[in-house]
């Protein structure tokens, strides 16, 4: 059945409830909720969460914002924790200790800090071992939970509290790690990069494929942070759209090694459009700093071209 947003929202209950305590306008709950909507209603889920904004706001004792089973252990080990739960499922199912006709799906959520940085080993291990699970990174490009410190997902030149734009050093001086490509190199059955773009078709369909592809799958989802990025809380969906239209955050999937770019902007916008509304890039627009924007643009263009090439090469 073709995707229909209204139908999905009307018929599939929210499995990520209200009453959580993430900031107003946060990009992450929107992503988490839609990913879970991709579950078949009759399927149970075990959700693991790395420590981070999402975890500390959705499960503050005695309140859980998750209607499925949920486990949080620590910052760097959502992958390993969930792999243990999945192994338990496989074992108990094999022994006939769980009903044969009922299914549980395994989904991990982690921010970029818990995924790109401190949790990359645990993630890599879980994916390599082939557990039937999905790891969803909601990437807001810094350690937002502890107060906007730079991570390896932070874009170059961004002003964060540990890469401040100072008089000598203009923000973060290193490029953003490409975690999606690292996960592609694990040769997983399904890897995708996406974000929340109305009508959420891209996100929903990728989540559905990730959840219902047997074996390990990885979703990298950009999730803007109004506080850390420095934009008004109401601009969430516009920032997402600009990330896609400037090709800063390309939407694509890799199925068994084959690349497929799922969104090609009719008109690729200059990167300034994405950078300008965000205070973390404000210093790039000062006179004399034009080189920073040029360099940023070059990097975006190079990575986009790489993707176009990969799509061509892998589909020959």
């Amino acid at each position: 059945m073709p995707y229909n947003l209204k139908e999905v929202v009307a018929n599939k209950p929210s499995r990520f409830t209200a009453g959580h305590r993430m900031c107003a306008g946060c990009g992450a709950p929107v992503v988490g909720r839609m990913v879970l909507r991709a579950l078949k209603e009759e399927d149970h889920a075990v959700i693991a969460n790395a420590t981070g904004c999402m975890e500390v706001s959705t499960f503050i004792y005695p309140y859980s914002a998750w209607t499925d089973s949920f486990i949080h252990t620590a910052f760097e080990c959502a992958g390993a924790t969930l792999s243990g739960a999945e192994a338990a499922y496989v074992s108990l199912k094999k022994q006939g200790k769980l009903p044969e006709d009922e299914h549980t799906k395994f989904i991990a959520f982690g921010g970029d800090g818990g995924t790109y940085d401190i949790g990359i080993q645990s993630l890599s291990g879980a994916m390599e071992r082939g557990h039937d699970m999905v790891y969803v990174c909601y990437d807001n490009g810094a350690y937002m939970n502890t107060g906007i410190q730079r991570s390896s997902a932070t874009p170059k030149f961004a002003d964060t509290t540990t890469s401040p734009a100072g008089k000598v050093i203009p923000g973060k001086m290193q490029s953003r790690k490409d975690l999606t490509e690292i996960m592609v190199s694990h040769h997983l059955p399904y890897v995708a990069q996406t974000l929340a773009l109305n009508p959420f078709k891209d996100l929903y369909e990728k989540a559905e494929k990730a959840i219902y592809t047997k074996g390990p799958a990885f979703l990298n989802v950009m999730a803007p942070c109004p506080r850390g990025w420095g934009y008004a809380t109401d601009e969430l969906m516009q920032i997402n759209k600009l990330a896609a239209d400037t090709c800063y955050w390309p939407l694509y999937e890799v199925v068994d090694g084959k690349y497929h770019i799922t969104y090609k902007p009719a008109k690729k916008l200059p990167i300034e459009e994405f950078l300008k509304p965000q205070k973390r890039f404000r210093h790039m627009f000062k006179p004399g700093n034009e080189w920073m924007i040029e360099e940023f643009q070059k990097e975006v263009d190079r990575r986009w071209q790489d993707l176009l090439d990969l799509e061509e090469v892998t589909n020959k």
Partner: peptide, 26 residues
């Protein structure tokens, strides 16, 4: 983000759920 827009089975929305709306304006 706060699941404060109720949508019925008829695929139509109704007024906001002000118990949860944080006023972000998205």
């Amino acid at each position: 983000p706060d699941d404060s827009i109720p949508v019925g089975k008829d695929q139509k929305r109704t007024d906001f759920n002000y118990d949860y709306c944080k006023g972000c304006g998205v």
